[in-house]
């Protein structure tokens, strides 16, 4: 640690390969641990992908089951449910991108503009808390707040002589509930990366702008936003890559039978056919499909972003 980089560099050149390894083998040993982790837990399970092409029999195991080619794919692509869940996955993710993606940016800029340090600190802490609450608990809170009969919000509406709103049991109001629960849960946590990027802005830029008579909004538009553009683009690419994958907890817990038309997504579909009815082959097919489409999306959005902005992540 005490050695300066230049010194280290020169030393390395003078070392032979063998003595280089002898000197630095601990670093490689440390590096090997995450590598082993990836091999065992990320690449190892890919062995199971072949289930998608087999008539999987629990008792014969993966190796002993018979190959069936693309039969399972044909069956999945022939299921009407598959398309409705695929549509819902895209729809929920796309709306999430429109509503939930800008939220942390706006929030981060607002926090950045606050001058009072203690108020900023307290607000940040309060904003982070929802991130640490599990969806199961959020689901309980949402039901208590937005139910028709026992929900607090509808209770207030009713006592004011207004009509109740079926936040959970009709598909369009439900969509709004779903999206804003997401914003509530993740927007605060999402500000962290943007705040980090914001602290890197040179304060002199603002002072110069002030001298030129720029208003606060103009400063945000011409200094703050351009400075965090690379961060925004990177996160946008990552989010686009996730378009076809969707978490299981949120749609499963916030969703209910009355809004199944919207809340049934690929992950809940896989859970139902794979784990509940034991059709592992079909579930693997859907999982594989998700992975392939996800890869196409992330490569595609990275390509476009490189062309348009010059920034990419790969």
């Amino acid at each position: 640690m005490l050695l300066c980089p230049v010194f280290l560099h020169r030393r390395r050149l003078t070392l032979s390969k063998a003595s280089y390894f002898r000197r630095y083998w601990q670093l490689y040993a440390l590096l090997s641990l995450p590598l082993i982790y990836f091999l065992i837990f990320r690449y190892g399970p890919m062995y199971g992908v072949q289930i998608a092409f087999k008539d999987f029999n629990l008792f014969k195991g993966i190796g002993g089951s018979e190959w069936i080619g693309f039969d399972a794919f044909r069956e999945v692509f022939g299921m009407r449910e598959f398309y409705s869940t695929l549509r819902n996955t895209f729809m929920l993710n796309f709306l999430d991108l429109i509503i939930s993606f800008p939220a942390p940016i706006i929030l981060a800029i607002m926090l950045y503009e606050i001058k009072s340090v203690w108020f900023k600190k307290i607000s940040q802490t309060i904003l982070y808390i929802p991130h640490f609450i599990s969806w199961v608990i959020i689901g309980g809170i949402v039901y208590q707040l937005f139910g028709n009969q026992s929900g607090m919000v509808n209770g207030v509406l009713e006592s004011m002589g207004l009509n109740t709103i079926p936040f959970l049991t009709e598909k369009n109001p439900w969509l709004i509930t779903y999206l804003f629960t997401g914003v509530w849960q993740s927007a605060g946590w999402g500000t962290i990366l943007y705040l980090a990027a914001l602290t890197g802005i040179n304060r002199e830029l603002f002072e110069a702008a002030e001298v030129d008579g720029a208003t606060r909004l103009k400063k945000i538009r011409y200094i703050t936003l351009p400075s965090i553009k690379p961060t925004i683009v990177t996160l946008l690419i990552l989010n686009l890559g996730k378009m076809v994958s969707i978490g299981f907890d949120r749609p499963y817990i916030i969703g209910n039978t009355a809004v199944r038309e919207y809340s049934d997504v690929l992950s809940t579909f896989v859970y139902r056919i794979g784990l509940e009815s034991g059709q592992y082959t079909l579930a693997t097919v859907v999982g594989l499909f998700q992975a392939v489409v996800g890869l196409i999306f992330i490569l595609g959005s990275n390509y476009i972003s490189k062309k348009v902005t010059g920034n990419g992540i790969l």
Binding site: T257, A258, R272, I273
Partner: peptide
């Protein structure tokens, strides 16, 4: 083959036609 799907569907039928 269809049990789980239809079980789910039964719940949807009940809820939607009731409401």
């Amino acid at each position: 083959q269809y049990g789980t799907t239809l079980n789910d569907k039964l719940a949807v039928i009940i809820v939607k036609t009731a409401m």
